[in-house]
Amino acid sequence: MDETTQPMVLMDQVTKSFRIADQDVAILKGIDLNVRRGEFVAVMGPSGSGKTTLMNLIGCLDVPTGGRYILAGRDVTKLTDDELSVIRNEHIGFVFQNFCLIPYATVYENVLLPSLYTMKSKNDAAGRAVDLLRMVGLEHRTRSKPALLSGGEQQRAGIARALINSPELLLADEPTGQLDSRTAEDIMKLFVRMNADHKTVIIITHDPNIAGYASRIVRIKDGLMET
């Protein structure tokens, strides 16, 4: 398979269980997921369905208990903690529900954050950060602390940060969960724009309106994919 037809995310019978009070509790019971490059996928499911755990696995924040996970052609099932950090840094842009900005850093410094940890020597992050802030419409807030920004503005900063290292995959966990519906619409339009710009986008949500922006919806229930 060449670069373009190779799937972005390929999960094969992925399971995840946690040990809670001396008992193994299976959260994911065998997930098969195939997300092609350039797709815009929404993962839906009720709370407790395991969608957050799935998001952690896709985002390489955690490793599966069983099965195989291929990210951008690379088997990441058995990578070390440091290797996973590099994968997160170079291939994945995270957007969080509660924005997750560092409170004592300015918007600009927050956007730069992933670029600090990159191993690549060539790194024109400063210039890119300015471009990204302009793109999300925050060029007038670059020197502000996040607390002075509205929720929508904070999430724009979060998106700019997710894009700073030019990852192929954007991963968003309820990105509009704390925003009013008008602001949510603006944010979703940004994701649509990113997708049009050849980024693969995976959004986890329980809101059908949000899922409506995606080109494909996968549903998860009780740790299994619904077909």
Binding site: S85, R88, I102, Y117, N165
Partner: peptide, 16 residues
């Protein structure tokens, strides 16, 4: 704690 989580998720290693 959250700041540390943020840093880790955007690619900071334990050592960092």
């Amino acid at each position: 704690t959250r700041e540390i989580g943020i840093r880790r998720s955007v690619g900071a290693k334990k050592g960092d």
